[in-house]
Design a protein around this nucleic acid. Structure first.
Length: 803
DNA sequence: AATTATACTTTTTTT
DNA sequence: AAGTATAATT
């Protein structure tokens, strides 16, 4: 059986010559890859070779002649995952991967709607609204309907609309319970009308409209159900209701001829319930598709034993799991290190030292990652790394196509393509300023509203100076459209940047240099897009569908150039390179990582770390209220999701894992006193090594320590460092809030201090947050972590200091 | 029209 | 604290 063994490091080994694809797989992976064409659910634990199984399965199906490229659909959530799949597949098989429907849910929907735009009642070059565009579109609707933005908060309305669509509900389908919902539904309807009028769709609309088209057109449905004999789904636990229904629609009813859905997922890594993901889809899938093949991939090729034990132990505290345990043959490895710090500042200093040490001992910086629950936590760590001159890279934040200057440029391009796009119109009609003020626009929007036409179509009704300026703007756009006709994408963008005045505008701005750089980068992105998407000479010559006898098949292209340039299903006509590029920009917002390329420590939220792995991982801020986050403590499901999040965080580490918490933390400009996370109680003691004395108490008296140190004229750092094992370097003066020192100095009598760790018979461990009153009136506010923060009368409550 | 003041918020995120 | 969004000022 040795021929099925994977390398200990789990690396894919490409056998030389004509040897089998399957050579590098372990028995479970092999079983999954070679399953018959029947519905299957693969429970793939973290680091168990999930992507390899997916890609090898596709390759195997084709190599054994069970399916042609046109018969495969593989769906992912992110562009990154889709690209990785394509790359790995390309390395395995000398096949034209472009013929396969491999992409994100939204990318595939886009492809589908481009091919069937007429049936979908869309303009051929419909454009896609990103979340920002959608928000401003909703704002316009709310304004137009004269609704109060206090009662109808645009963000919440947007959320309502997206939520409804993801439940498959059109305005008429939404159940009306009260006046508020009634109004919301009206906004929803008006928003839909507006989108339709402007020829734009939002992300949820891509999914819903595709679903409805399939549902309502039998011929179309038959065709695609026949065509996609194999549908593979990645990260199945993250699917929402609509996506699941969508999959069922493409898969069709259970059948004899071997159509099959191959779903890969991990219920323990479901961390997106807050945006509509339904883990229950996994159980539903198992039942509704009568899944006969459930395979668990539990062999982990990433982490050492102590790390996996910690993960397993922690996640076993969740209920309703499908049940899975990771195991490794790599041995226990190093213990999981636990660090307690007096403050977030100290935590960052310790982390910095530790990371430097790792790097000095030979670990590349990019193999060190710092994870936190919320973005706000990155600041202290960033400043520690920055001051020490350690290169680092923060994930998250603005993505390329979301930058203001880039969005402005795109808006001009969109207007060239479709002047009725009111969102884009409003974005740039007066940017750079050209004398079109709020007053003129108010008028214009009034006219447009009453006539039910676009702003562009209504502008001629405006007279006076504003009207003249509008006319000049229209002339600019019209002229751009005329002069760029037939030019290459690059030339179009360059001309637009000049003619619009964007370049000139940013040249005079003091902070404009970066922006101009980004605009130049936009030209490069367009150039790359053209090359990559094959928008050159032969892009139009497309093979025609050879699949199945469906009534529509004659005109359906099986292989198309790529997601963004799908031809019309009947005529084969494709949209212009410009329209395609705009779609691309909306569908793939680009990198959000700065300073790429350099060897840098990686900082990110636990959410963004999903799917990644590192030699060393620091999980910071493991405190009650932060991780698990206080907003998720109200219900059991919320806490379980936090636990899964912690599970994801732990399983990112290959060799070394640090868990760290701090007694105090600056949050929203206030110092918070925290108790260590309950997750520490859910980890196996044997796998942990405390770098700081255990149970010495959260609240081991930060304020008091500081005061003592301060009186001695030394820094807190050296004091805390004394007697502790961590490599402590005296830091610069820690930013201790003055009122904390004050509070510590003021207290007397009852012997308690703010920041003091205490024990209560009923509530357990806690930290004193506030002290008030004296004598019999003395009361303390104590933060008990999972029991919340309580006010206690000190004459009654029995509080024992824990030090 | 551009600059400046004030109010407000703040879990996690992809498409 | 810090950033954004709206209001008020020049």
């Amino acid at each position: 059986m040795t021929e099925f063994e994977a390398g200990a490091d789990g690396a894919v080994r490409h056998p030389a010559g004509g040897e089998s694809l399957l050579r590098a797989l372990n028995p479970e992976q092999l079983a999954a890859v070679t399953l018959p064409a029947e519905p299957a659910l693969i429970l793939a634990g973290a680091g168990s070779g999930k992507t390899r199984v997916l890609t090898t399965r596709i390759a195997w199906l084709m190599q054994t002649g069970q399916v042609s490229p046109g018969g495969v659909m593989a769906v992912t959530f992110t562009n990154k995952a889709a690209k990785e799949m394509l790359t790995r597949l390309g390395a395995m098989l000398p096949v034209n991967v472009r013929g396969m429907w491999i992409g994100t849910f939204h990318g595939l929907c886009n492809r589908f709607l481009r091919a069937h735009w007429k049936m979908a009642a869309l303009p051929q070059s419909f454009q896609i609204l990103d979340s920002g565009d959608q928000l401003s579109a909703v704002k316009r609707v709310i304004k137009a309907m004269n609704l109060d933005e206090e009662r109808f908060v645009p963000k919440q309305v947007t959320w309502f609309i997206a939520g409804s669509k993801e439940e498959g509900l059109r305005p008429k389908d939404v159940e009306i319970r009260d006046g508020q919902t009634q109004k919301l539904v009206e906004v929803y309807q008006a928003y839909e009308d507006q989108c339709q009028r402007e020829g734009v769709v939002d992300f949820a609309e891509l999914m819903l409209r595709t679903f409805e088209l399939m549902r309502d057109h039998a011929a179309l449905r038959d065709h695609y159900q026949r065509r996609f004999r194999h549908i593979l789904v990645d990260e199945f636990q993250d699917t929402n209701r609509l996506q699941y229904a969508w999959l069922k629609m493409f898969a069709g009813p259970p059948r004899e001829d071997g159509g099959a859905v191959f779903a890969v997922g991990d219920d323990d890594q479901s961390i997106y319930a807050f945006r509509g993901a339904q883990v229950s889809n996994m159980a539903d899938f198992e039942r509704e598709f009568r899944v006969k093949h459930l395979i668990k991939l539990e062999r982990n090729y990433r982490s050492f034993g102590n790390i996996l034990d910690s993960a397993n132990h922690l996640i076993s505290h969740n209920t309703h799991r499908l049940g899975k345990n990771l195991r490794t043959e790599a041995g226990p490895g190093e213990p999981v290190r636990v660090q307690e710090s007096a403050s977030d500042y100290n935590e960052a200093q310790w982390l910095l030292e530790e990371a430097q040490q790792l790097h000095r001992s030979g670990m590349p910086r990019r193999e060190i990652s710092v994870l936190y629950r919320s973005n706000a936590q990155s600041r202290v760590i960033e400043s520690a790394l920055f001051n020490a001159g350690v290169p680092y890279r923060v994930y998250g934040g603005l993505r390329f196509f979301e930058r203001a200057e880039v969005k402005h440029a795109l808006a001009y391009l969109r207007l060239i393509e479709n002047p009725n796009d009111d969102t884009s119109y409003l974005r740039v009609v007066n940017f750079p300023t050209r004398g079109i003020g709020a007053r003129t626009l108010e008028q214009l929007q009034d006219v447009a509203r009453t006539s039910g036409r676009s702003l562009w179509q209504s502008a001629s009704a405006i007279s006076g100076k504003g009207g003249a300026n509008l006319a000049a703007f229209h002339a600019l756009i019209d002229k751009l459209r005329a002069t760029t006709h037939g030019l290459t994408l690059r030339e179009i963008i360059e001309q637009m940047l000049q003619a619009s005045g964007l370049i000139d505008f940013y040249r005079t701005e003091k902070e404009g240099a970066d922006r101009i750089e980004n605009l130049e980068e936009l030209v490069n992105a367009a150039e790359a897009f053209v090359t990559q998407e094959g928008f050159g000479k032969d892009a139009v010559a497309l093979p025609v569908d050879e699949q199945g006898p469906g009534t529509l098949s004659a005109g359906l292209p099986a292989a198309v150039a790529d997601v963004d340039v799908t031809p019309d299903a009947e005529t084969g006509e494709i949209i212009s390179p410009l329209a395609a590029f705009l779609t691309h920009a909306a569908l793939e917002a680009g990198d959000n990582q700065a300073q790429a390329g350099q060897d840098a420590v990686q900082l990110m939220t636990v959410h963004s770390a999903k799917g990644l792995e590192f030699d060393a991982v620091f999980i910071t801020g493991l405190e009650e209220g932060l991780f698990p986050h206080e907003n998720s403590l109200s219900d059991a499901d919320g806490l379980e999701e936090e636990r899964r999040l912690m599970y994801v965080a732990i399983t990112r580490a290959r060799q070394r894992l640090y868990l760290s918490f701090s007694q105090t933390r600056m949050l929203h400009g206030q110092t918070r006193y925290n108790v260590k996370s309950r997750f520490f109680d859910e980890l196996p003691d044997g796998a942990l090594k405390w770098l700081t004395p255990r149970n010495q108490g959260f609240g081991s008296g930060y304020a008091r320590d500081y005061q003592a140190a301060w009186q001695r004229g030394s820094g807190l750092g050296s004091m805390v460092g004394a007697g502790r094992q961590s490599a402590w370097q005296p830091p610069a003066a820690p930013p201790v809030p003055a009122r904390m020192v004050e509070a510590a100095a003021k207290q007397a009598g009852h012997g308690l201090r703010v920041g003091q760790g205490v024990f209560h018979n009923k509530f357990g461990e806690g930290v004193v947050v506030t002290l008030e009153g004296t004598g019999a009136d003395a009361r303390a506010q104590v933060h008990f972590g999972r029991h919340g923060t309580k006010w206690l009368a000190l004459s009654v409550a029995k509080l024992t200091p824990t030090e």
